[in-house]
Every structure is written in C-alpha cells, then in structure tokens.
C-alpha cells in the first residue's frame, strides 16, 4: 500500500527523530497529490495527512483514519480531530502571517456534530475569516463523504520570530 510519497517525508524534525508508527500502510487518498511533511513531531507521530490545491487557490486537506485513532467508545477520538484542526488551521493561519513573524494558537473552539467512524476519510478546506496586525481568525468544517462531522474555529496570535 506504500506509495512514493513516503520517501519524500523527513526523518528528523527540529533535531528530533520523527516517530511514524506504521505510516507505510497509509495510502494516498484518491484526488490528493501531496503528503504533508508534518514537521511538528506530535503530528508526525500520531497521523498522516494529505493535501491538494484547488482551481480557486484554496487548499483541501485529508486525514485517513484507522484503528489507531479511536477512543474507548470505539469512535474517532475527539483529540485526533482537534489535533488535525490545529494542524490545518495553522497552515491556513501561517499563510496569512506577515513575513518574519510566526503565529501561535491562542484559542480553539471545537464542536462535534456526530461521531467519526474508524476508516472515515476526513476532509476540510480551512479559511481565514479575518486577519489583523496581531491576530488571525480561522475556521474549518470537517466533512466525511460531504457531510459535516466536526467544526473548529481558532484565534492565532502573531508574534515576532
């Protein structure tokens, strides 16, 4: 099931060896062209996501889920959804972040519309709703087969490097 994308991922991030448990068994979803490098060690450790750029310039992200992602009730753990949200809303916020600055999460609101099931492919096209000199507001609606299961909105603080 391993694709060529696997060889493009870095082995280390910020001087730390990246742990990728059995990532080679995750296939690139249909319609996607790129595996996220996931330079954050916790993301590289806990999931693999993919992206494509759409004709209008927006970016859609996809997260394949499997048995490593469930909770004690047997459905997708809210923590995975919130972590994926922090990741993709972060990419979105960073795209609006001025040069020579960085942004950090100040607040995230997460709503769980229905349970995600093991095996679901979760897709999102996050947007920047407002950007000021010091703050960036982002949100995303997370879909399974076109139906929303989860939504998140976050506020990012722009800081100097």
């Amino acid at each position: 099931m391993s694709g060529d994308w696997l060889s493009t991922l870095p082995d280390t991030a910020h001087g730390l060896k990246v742990q990728r448990p059995a990532v080679s068994d995750i296939a690139m979803p249909a319609g996607y062209s790129e595996a996220l490098p996931l330079v954050d060690p916790f993301e590289a450790y806990s999931f693999q996501s993919f992206r494509r750029t759409n004709a209008d310039g927006s970016v859609t992200y996809a997260l394949p889920t499997d048995a490593r992602h469930d909770n004690s009730a047997g459905v997708i753990h809210g923590g995975l959804l919130m972590t994926f949200a922090d990741s993709v809303l972060g990419y979105c916020a960073w795209s609006a972040c001025p040069p020579n600055s960085l942004c950090v999460t100040v607040s995230q609101s997460s709503s769980f519309l229905r349970a995600g099931r093991v095996g679901d492919l979760i897709e999102v096209t996050p947007v920047v709703t407002r950007a000021t000199r010091t703050m960036i507001f982002t949100r995303g609606e997370f879909l399974v087969a076109g139906e929303p299961i989860f939504q998140a909105a976050s506020i990012w603080k722009v800081t100097g490097k």
Binding site: V39, D40, P41, E43, H77, G79, M82, V104, T105, Q108
Partner: peptide, 21 residues
Amino acid sequence: AKHLNGGGNLHGGLLMTLADN
C-alpha cells in the same frame, strides 16, 4: 519530545486531547 510542535513547545493538539480526556 514526540509530543512537541515545530516550535519546541507542547503541541496544542496534545493539550486539547489531554483536556478532552
């Protein structure tokens, strides 16, 4: 170390998961 983000701090997703638990 595997729970950090790219900035060397604990990942927000990790903290939200801990809070959820």
